[in-house]
């Protein structure tokens, strides 16, 4: 319960932090926050046919198995590694989807 509360508080803080920011800045902040919390690198892309064109975030220098997740037909996130707990991952992705431009 305490963990859920803490996670929700963290999401709330990010929500406030990214308010009014441009797409690139907003997604950059979210990527940094995820790295601070989980030590996991994520980066966001605009999907253009087969191309995932980088928008924000950073993958680091070490190759790790990556997960590419569709956030919408236009946007995707690439996550390096498996360290985000399953329960938080879904809620986190929902939050990110909400923050994306239409």
């Amino acid at each position: 319960m305490k963990e859920t509360y803490e996670f929700e508080k963290w999401i709330k803080q990010i929500e406030e932090k990214v308010q009014g920011l441009y797409r690139e800045e907003k997604l950059g902040v979210i990527a940094e926050e995820i790295y601070s919390r989980y030590g996991v690198r994520v980066w966001f892309s605009e999907i253009l046919g087969k191309r995932w064109s980088h928008i924000a975030g950073w993958g680091g220098y070490d190759p790790t198995p990556i997960h590419q997740i569709l956030l919408s037909p236009r946007y995707g996130v690439t996550i390096g590694g498996d360290e985000i707990p399953e329960a938080e991952r879904e809620a986190l992705l929902s939050f990110i989807k909400k923050e994306l431009p239409n």
Partner: peptide, 19 residues
């Protein structure tokens, strides 16, 4: 062709290449 299909493009790619 992995880089461009997972978002390692432009600035992201260059940052890794330059290092």
């Amino acid at each position: 062709t992995a880089d461009y299909r997972c978002g390692r493009t432009g600035e992201h790619f260059m940052e890794i290449a330059k290092k």
